[in-house]
Amino acid sequence: MTLPPFQLLVDAHWHDVARLAAALAPPGEAQDVSQQAWTQAYAAYPRLRGADNLRSWLLTITHRAAMDAHRARARRPDPVTELPEPALAPATSAAADVSASAESDPALWAAVAALPVRQREAVALRYVCDLDHATVAAVLTTTPGATRRLVSDGLATLRRALAPTSTDLAPSTAHSPAHSPDSPADSPADSPAEDRS
């Protein structure tokens, strides 16, 4: 078993690593996080045993780098964190964004950034990176059942956040304790606070 030349990994996966970093990193730190992930991967690469799943290896490193960045940010009192996110344009400005290609979707990614962290990790790993539930569970060191629930809660939150008029969704708060571990996967009513009138 020989490991492929590192450049082939970069060519095949840098886009996915950048996407995951952008979905998970603190605001404005996505590029640092993906660069950090690549630096760590390059350092560890020759000692890696087995070339079976290099992509999920890279994405695991990227996930860890993003979480490290959040922890580092939490440790240092930084007034910048109080500012609104500069990297993510508001929902209405897609047309004005000069870097916007057909592939840009600022409203969606602003909503992803606003997800609770575990939901955001699960949704990003499952759909941004297209990993199956077993792999997502391994990255998050939890069970596939738990990741399914996180993904489904995350998608529900995103659907509400992206709904055309949020007032339509106002509140049957009666069913809301959806974040308890026993809650059904597709609980319709785990409204985040900002949706309540």
Partner: peptide, 15 residues
């Protein structure tokens, strides 16, 4: 949309 769109401009890593 989660699968196909980009959260931000992405750049390749440097070494």
């Amino acid at each position: 949309r989660l699968r196909s769109t980009l959260p931000a401009a992405v750049v390749p890593p440097t070494f």
